[in-house]
Design a protein around this nucleic acid. Structure first.
Lengths: 340, 340
DNA sequence: CTGAAAGCGCTTACAG
DNA sequence: CTGAAAGCGCTTACAG
């Protein structure tokens, strides 16, 4: 790996030195013209400009930045930028990055902590000015020395562990509260939760919101309701279930469908589930904008680069309930749940 | 934009000079140890290693690369990395990039030629070693001088215009031929095409494949069939229609649906359409793997960096027909090829 | 208004 | 085995 020859051919581009030689001026004068610094005769300026044109000179930013001490780059570390959420989040980061005239490095961890550390350290070795990280499960102690060395790091989607840093998150707790309250308003009293393991950040947040909504309505909660599996869902007493992700939403729908229409459990999903609106009846979902999470993360990052040095902050991006039963979106074609 | 202070605080990291001072050796000796060059006493080595440890030194890659002349970076320029296809493509590029120990810059053009040029030039100013570009419509003359200056450029999804460069493409023509032949085999004789404007690269390719398949079956083609609009589709004589994109597939389905079941036109889509398999009846689609396009593009790019200097090449990634009616795909599989 | 020198952090020749 | 010098392409002080 990485044993590529300097340059196929075509090779070296002209440098300021070449331009200076050609224009018959000193290097510094070329620098002045290129940077638009004042105090250069119009004649000299045009002579330099002419040489630049003839030689096809273009300033080497990397060299300039080395002298400057900054790199004007941000690193974005995603789970897997091939998936919808990472991509949208990255897009949000990119927008803010461009507004600030920075360039963006991007990489995926595939949720592997080893790859996260490796990628991060390589980015730090390039001296990126800041990092937006969608953290893998686990700790990030290797980051402490980097942050002390001056690199700004902001977390996205999941908060840092054992570390004081900014984080842009989704308001999962509020979302679950809204979702469960909605189910309660529809008359449900025995409501379940189907999702990932209870140690995960997202499930903890969702369950917190779930509990709040149930308590608010003075409804009792059976421990079994929040420890559902697709299998147990069928034999459960719940009349409605909150699903913790797109995948669990699909799983719940398939499971219920395969059990026949005798099983009537209302499903409410967390996270966009594009098929939801095409089903009959529509499946309500809590949706949020990952790009907004990316934007918020990047804004906090640039806040640090602009001098903010306070303690870690949290920004929560809200999720909204979308009920596809409304006539707002006409179904594209006849569908039955049996197709899920 | 871009008036951020050098470093919040924490500030400067130790350099090789600092390490040399601390270890009581010359700069060059530190360099030898860091690079694992032979000919350093074990004692000296451990003294240097100790200093590195104590100071928390980490080599500045950007500085090293400046001296080296290369940057070990690739730039990826997408339509909009927030969309599914760009994201998957970028993921493919990333995989190959990492295998080669390079880092990846990423940016979106939003299909704006001005932004494409601006982004490209900024990346070139950073002296990236290569570029994978999903080109916006139009020309890319600004690239000629960059390529001559030694930067390798490979196009993805759409070929370059007025430029000799490698390109990784989808075999749209073959896909259309397969699709139309499939419809013909099902008994259709009056087959239409619904897609973008006929000047676009994709539509030209699809129509070429369409024509080949029709000619192969000795079927006549009415010019009106390939100039369909959703509106005209309803009053057309066609019994089947090939749609040029996810969007057109959705449009066709909605249009036919709103017209009621009296209209019976078979729809076959080009491009993954996640809802397709949930419909009754299932909608067959031609799918391809955008990540594979990205991988192929990156492989060609590294081929150039490794010394290949021949003329521009073309690699075509195949598309496969997926008929959701067949039992080939178990219904348990929630979403299709490009992970929806 | 213009330029010669030193330096960013590292590596590449050359000496000892 | 180790080091002093020059240089990558540019900028930052300082002189004239």
């Amino acid at each position: 790996m990485n044993n590529h020859t300097p340059a196929g051919r075509g090779g070296s581009r002209p440098t300021m030195k070449d331009v200076a030689l050609r224009a018959g001026v000193a290097l510094k004068t070329v620098s002045r013209v290129v940077n638009g610094e004042p105090g250069v005769t119009p004649e000299t300026t045009s002579r330099v400009l002419g040489a630049i044109e003839e030689l096809g000179f273009r300033r080497n930013e990397s060299a300039r930045l080395l002298r400057t001490g900054r790199t004007a780059t941000i690193g974005f570390i995603a789970d897997n930028w091939g998936d919808r959420e990472s991509a949208a989040l990255g897009r949000g980061v990119e927008e803010v990055t461009r507004e600030h005239g920075f360039l963006l490095f991007a990489g995926s961890t595939d949720s592997d902590p080893v790859r996260e550390e490796e990628l991060t350290l390589r980015l730090c070795a390039r001296r990126v000015d800041g990092l937006v990280i969608v953290p893998t499960p686990g700790q990030h102690d290797y980051l402490i020395s980097e942050i002390q060395a001056g690199i700004a790091a902001v977390f996205a989607m999941r908060p840092p562990v054992h570390l004081d840093a900014d984080a842009a998150l989704v308001d999962e707790r509020g979302a679950a509260r809204t979702a469960v309250s909605h189910l309660i308003a529809q008359g449900h009293q025995r409501i379940g939760y189907l999702g990932g393991n209870h140690e995960g950040y997202r499930t903890r947040q969702l369950l917190a919101g779930y509990s709040e909504a149930m308590a608010e309505a003075a409804l009792p909660v059976d421990a079994a309701w929040t420890a559902l599996t697709p299998q147990r869902l069928l034999n459960s007493a719940v009349t409605a279930v909150l699903c913790g992700s797109r995948e669990y939403t699909a799983l719940a729908l398939r499971t219920l469908e395969s059990a026949g229409t005798s099983q009537r459990v209302a499903v409410l999903g967390f996270g966009a589930f594009e098929v939801a609106e095409h089903l009959t009846p529509g499946v309500p979902v809590m949706v949020y904008d990952p790009a907004e999470v990316g934007r918020e993360a990047a804004e906090m990052l640039f806040g640090r680069l602009d001098g903010y040095t306070g303690p870690g902050r949290r920004v929560y991006v809200p999720a909204a309930l979308v009920t596809h039963d409304s006539a707002a979106i006409p179904p594209a074609a006849p569908l039955s749940v049996s197709d899920v």
